[in-house]
């Protein structure tokens, strides 16, 4: 028996919008720790890892570990039927081939339940080793989204370079080139508007902008984003979900032959 009640149901709606472009089908894993997902995109270039900790739910009952295969487009269709202020409860019985999403309006005057068929998905769970990153950039998530969008109108790839001067995003295409430098800026009114660079040593990596733009679908989940970079490792683009967990995207770099 599984029963997860999330008062801030809009979080779940935003999570689905954040991952459904990248991944078509995925297993949602439920354990005492929380509600999680790990999946690669179809070309195995990017990986998304989601965690919603059990403590973040108003009610969390998960009698045994359960893995539920879902088509994310279909989950998104169901969750779009929930109001933005609705409380969402996810329910499943042991051995059942369906999951139920229950939506309650804030004043309890409307209650809806949507039952969705589960699917069998063969997915490989990857071990993500703890890594010391050469540079971690924290910046406003909206600023990062703007940079990725702007650069993708010029080129297909971005070189992200971190030095003590700041973080530079560069691209080149048929019509020309573009460079955007963001300097460390801690002296802002609100901490979420700061750009903070923790650098052990300079690092420069090349990535496909198409994937980074897909990651920015998570922007509504968090005011800030952190970008962790090391030579010869996938970049980690993390959006924290307040008090609950995170959506992390890993993107394999482009490597000179």
């Amino acid at each position: 028996m599984l029963e997860l009640r999330l008062v801030q149901g809009s979080l779940l709606k935003k999570v689905l919008e954040a991952i459904k472009e990248l991944v078509t089908d995925a297993n949602f894993d439920c354990s005492a720790t929380g509600f999680s997902l790990q999946a690669m995109d179809s070309s195995h270039v990017a990986l998304v890892a989601l965690l919603l900790r059990s403590e973040g739910f108003e009610h969390y009952r998960c009698d045994r570990n359960l893995s539920m295969g879902m088509n994310l487009g279909n989950v998104s269709k169901m969750l779009r039927c929930a109001g933005s202020d609705d409380i969402i409860t996810i329910k499943a019985d042991d051995g059942s081939d369906t999951v139920t999403f229950m939506f309650e309006s804030p004043n309890q005057d409307k209650i809806a339940d949507f039952e969705m068929k589960l699917m069998d998905i063969d997915s490989e769970h990857l071990g993500i080793p703890d890594a010391e990153y050469q540079a971690i950039v924290r910046m406003p998530s909206g600023e990062f989204a703007r940079i990725c969008k702007d650069l993708s109108s010029i080129g297909d790839t971005v070189i992200i370079s971190v030095t003590k001067e700041g973080v530079k995003f560069s691209t080149a295409g048929d019509i020309g080139t573009a460079n955007i430098v963001c300097r460390q800026n801690k002296t802002v009114d609100k901490p979420e508007e700061a750009t903070v660079i923790e650098m052990q040593e300079p690092v420069s990596l090349t990535f496909a902008l198409r994937y980074l733009n897909s990651f920015t679908k998570a922007t509504p989940l968090s005011e800030t984003v952190s970008i962790s970079l090391s030579s010869d490792l996938p970049v980690v683009v993390e959006y924290k979900i307040a008090d609950m967990g995170y959506v992390r995207y890993y993107l394999a770099p482009k490597i000179e032959e």
Binding site: S43, L126, P234
Partner: peptide, 14 residues
């Protein structure tokens, strides 16, 4: 040019 690597080059199946 640069070649796109894949995630499984870096992270192994658990």
């Amino acid at each position: 040019g640069a070649k796109q690597s894949i995630i499984t080059n870096f992270f192994k199946i658990a």
